[in-house]
Design a protein around this nucleic acid. Sequence first.
DNA 1: TATTGTTATACTCTATAACTATA
DNA 2: TATAGTTATAGAGTATAACAATA
Lengths: 165, 165
Amino acid sequence: MEPDPSSNVDVRASSRRVAFLLSQVGGLAASKFAERVSDLGVTPSDVGLLRVIATTPGLSQRGLADALGVGPSRVVALVDGLEDRGLVERTRSETDRRNHELRLTDAGRSVMTAMRTVGAAHERDLLAALTDEERIFLGEILAKVAEANQLLPDVHPGFHRTTKR
Amino acid sequence: MEPDPSSNVDVRASSRRVAFLLSQVGGLAASKFAERVSDLGVTPSDVGLLRVIATTPGLSQRGLADALGVGPSRVVALVDGLEDRGLVERTRSETDRRNHELRLTDAGRSVMTAMRTVGAAHERDLLAALTDEERIFLGEILAKVAEANQLLPDVHPGFHRTTKR
DNA sequence: TATTGTTATACTCTATAACTATA
DNA sequence: TATAGTTATAGAGTATAACAATA
């Protein structure tokens, strides 16, 4: 692309395309993951919801929306889909009848279990070219970048579109 | 999320979330880049087109579509936008009047130049928490993963949506 | 009056297929 | 007949705002 005028490898030159590579490989990881979980009948967005609901059963839709940083109407649509497929159940709260308490069904928990298997296979294949040490180091470096940029541990930025594509 | 039953750190446990981290940080890189280039009046998709056109002036729209792995009609829409903003020009080919030859205008080249500055700032900020060594190593590891997964050097997977989100 | 969830609506992005003009 | 580009159209995904029930 940009023809590099000097053939010397210096720090700035060799670190120039890292952000692009990160975005490119990250996009690949996302799309391959999407392919895999589609076999389970869920989208990555669904997976994100399932995970939050699994960790905080009884959560309200508003709470879920806040946790993910999306609008309430989107949560309605996504939970509708999960409920239709029998993975999540909504029950009116006894204490505040405005709330829907969200919980995984047995089928929902099965999907979560299957997802862990799928996720492990995904990671194994995606990073097959790396040594164990490289995988570990990659994880540590990425965690550092994620933390420095205030990413929440389990929220994927794909949830809130900041700008256009 | 998954409560780890053993407190020991073994290879499998610590490398389990790397694919997610990759997708998460990659998504962040993509969205922050989108924010930055929007100041230049272009989207990441626009940038992808501009780069290919810059490296192969005179390319046809069909050639561009093939290079990016997208349909011809999408190229029409994107080139329309770039032409309206005066960044790209279409000229009918002399030898085969079906073809449109694509070239950057002076304004287009200015945007490319500005983009390199923006890209460098983007990378600097995104990876500010890393040492020089870590940045270099990250780049090498990512390049290895990209190559093993047959990613084309300059094509972002965001161009061809493989499955749903 | 404020809040939860819902619906209605509009807008963007993308893909597919029909069409035209050249070959 | 085949190919390059275009247009038309439809389908996702997402966001905003209006609305109903409950507090």
